[in-house]
């Protein structure tokens, strides 16, 4: 089964055929600057991810440059490489690919 079909955040979630994978979005606001991570979004494929990124994070400001990459394709260092906890060090971008249960009686904040 392809990643697009698995969908979930990472490679570890419950398969669901309609869920789009998570992409990280990097935007260069103007010439001379680096691309900066601005957030994430869901898209079925790279083209859609770019379209959505332009709509959502730049409000289609012409002239900015956008990179998108599947979150599951990013290898990330840990903050503290000597932590025995995190071996191997080149881990997924987010440490917790599965959902953590939230109590159902959510009080008003």
């Amino acid at each position: 089964m392809s990643d697009a079909q698995i969908g979930r955040n990472g490679d570890n979630g419950t398969p669901s055929k309609g869920d789009w994978p998570l992409y990280e979005v990097f935007v260069r606001g103007k010439r001379g600057l680096n691309h900066v991570h601005v957030g994430s979004l869901h898209a079925a494929d790279d083209t859609m991810a770019l379209t959505h990124a332009r709509d959502l994070y730049t409000r289609r400001n012409e002239g900015v440059s956008i990179w998108v990459v599947r979150s599951s394709h990013i290898a990330a260092s840990t903050r503290d490489e000597k932590d025995p906890f995190f071996a191997p060090s080149a881990d997924k971008v987010y440490r917790h690919p599965t959902f953590y249960d939230i109590p159902d009686d959510v009080p008003h904040i």
Binding site: W20, L41, H42, A43, M48, T51, H52, D55, L56, R59, R60
Partner: peptide, 11 residues
């Protein structure tokens, strides 16, 4: 059909 499309259609 999806929140990202809300933003696109409104644009």
């Amino acid at each position: 059909p999806e929140l990202e499309e809300e933003v696109a259609l409104a644009n």
